[in-house]
């Protein structure tokens, strides 16, 4: 019985990961500018990859492999979030204007800076 429950959770987490990877890829291809693309592509690495790793952890059971996988997930979360932040910040500071409808100000940008 518990085998089936475990398998069900493995499938569930794998499908969650698949969903976020597909969504992230579609967003990366379809979104209009850097900031909008950054949003789905970081989801890909954090939620998508971590769900898949969680599924792999369940598959591996309580072993040393699980510990390694959890370490991978931890550093993945850390580095991807930081990367997204650094890319977005440096783009903003080097003056990349966010996508907006013609004639609509995206947000109060100091024009003089």
């Amino acid at each position: 019985m518990s085998e089936y429950v475990r398998d069900a959770f493995i499938v569930l987490f794998s499908l969650t990961g698949l969903f976020f990877f597909v969504g992230g890829t579609v967003g990366l291809l379809r979104c209009p500018d850097l900031y909008a693309r950054l949003h789905p592509s970081t989801k890909c690495d954090t939620l998508g990859a971590c769900s898949v790793i969680l599924a792999l952890c369940l598959q591996a059971g309580a072993s040393f492999v699980t510990l390694k996988l959890l370490a991978i997930a931890f550093f993945l979360l850390l580095s991807c979030a930081t990367c997204g932040h650094a890319i977005g910040r440096s783009a903003f500071r080097s003056g990349v204007v966010p996508w907006h409808k013609p004639g609509v100000k995206p947000w109060p940008i100091e024009e003089d800076e």
Binding site: F75, L78, S79, T82, H85, A86, R89, R93
Partner: peptide, 14 residues
């Protein structure tokens, strides 16, 4: 330009 405090903290840890 200094990198942000988030980046520096994470790098210091990693």
């Amino acid at each position: 330009v200094r990198s942000s405090v988030i980046v520096r903290t994470v790098v210091r840890f990693a």
